[in-house]
Amino acid sequence: MTATNIPKLNRAQIAARVARDIPEGAYVNLGIGIPTLVGDYLPKDRDILLHSENGILGMGPKPKAEDVDWDLINAGKEPVTLLAGGAFFHHADSFGMMRGGHLDICVLGAFQVSITGDLANWSTGEPDAIPAVGGAMDLAVGAKAVYIMMEHLTKKGESKLVEKCTYPLTAVGCVKRVYTDLAVIDITKTGPCVLEIVAGLPFEELQRLTGVTLIDGR
């Protein structure tokens, strides 16, 4: 199997897969970038409350153009809406909510995840890069479950699930589950445990692409 003919999910399909695992009643933070897509696929029959770090609980979908309000934006600074029953609060409360373990799930992107659940998602460590960390470190240590949504391989074909992160860390041992375009993998004490593989990709091939030793938990 060559890199071009590996069956893989697109970003929307990964988002839909993550959304299926978010239970009724969950308080959830979706990180900026790709994780935001998960919001479009949350089951309509479940009451799921989205938290936005800038001080919103009960965040709703994008508004119509005529309803855009620049005091009602998400963490990515895009206009959003507020559901009936939603609430506003200040930044210290918002991050207290995270750090205090009140959020059930956060979904974040990643450059790398290690087999012990270390997360690298805020900096590539390039000397000339403009740094920015935002709420990534707070979310990673604070949410009860940290789910990562990422492509399995870099553009060069290197596994993003690694023995040890080479990029600067966001947090140590925080990741619970990784959703990639190839598989769903739990980070466990005995190692990364594969729960699902995309249709058409044998476990052995996933193992070969991944580099670190995987447990077949299917």
């Binding site: 930044h91 210290a92 207290g96 960390v133 935002g134 709420g135 470190m137 707070d138 604070g142």
Partner: peptide
């Protein structure tokens, strides 16, 4: 000069 501070630490240090 930049001091980069995680957002929640920024809020809590001010608080």
């Amino acid at each position: 000069e930049l001091e980069l501070v995680p957002q929640g630490n920024l809020a809590e240090r001010i608080r």
